[in-house]
Amino acid sequence: MAKSIDVSDLNIYYGDFLAVEGVSMTIPARSVTALIGPSGCGKSTFLRSLNRMHEVIPGARVDGKVVIDGQELYAPEVDPVEVRRQIGMVFQRPNPFPTMSIYENVLAGSRLNAKKLKKHAADEIVEKSLRGANLWEEVKDRLDKPGAGLSGGQQQRLCIARAIAVEPQVLLMDEPCSALDPISTSAIEDLIHDLKSDYTIVIVTHNMQQAARVSEDTAFFNLAGAGKPGRLVEMNATRKIFSNPDEPSTEAYISGRFG
């Protein structure tokens, strides 16, 4: 199920503006890769180019290669809708569908894939996904209540349940804890630990302790200078990045001496 991702020479544009330049990296399967860097350095943009969500913005485009399991993501015959069905995404702010119940929220993706879903199969998917997102015990008695009635942390776990319900190959997380309190954050981090045995996870985070806690590998993005595009400075094992990085600018960022 989990697949590694090979990125080579990826340039990402908003219209004529080059936002991220020349990224090449290999994201290993069944492990957590963290993307860190200052605001505006293009890490979220890069993440969104991995499931072709970047091009949703008018004028946005990409050149270069992203290969998942031998399949070139940006090949002309590839349908972005299909790509997104195989690569789940969790956003910065929890975004369950407000009018849907908890139950229907989890099933939203499955309903898109297979129109007819037997009640029994649907129940199974819901329970499995909610258990997978560590939310089952908290919501099993109120599955028919609106998802928007949960707390922020629960909503975010509901979104994770929704993403894993379709059994994607890869799970992308864009600062999934930035809108959550420390307790919910730690619940999500525990969940990431559990999920990495089944999924390839890429997480963008502003919180360096979080990157150190949850990830195996860390990629540091930075701007080449004001008004210049963002680029990948260094990618290494998390332990190495946080103790003895190759690049001096990584060291400066990690230790808080930025510049």
Partner: peptide
């Protein structure tokens, strides 16, 4: 946010509108 939630699940544009 809601529209992107739908798109990220692999919704087509019409499915996104419905969701």
């Amino acid at each position: 946010l809601h529209q992107e939630a739908a798109l990220a699940l692999g919704a087509t544009r019409w499915e996104m509108v419905r969701l």
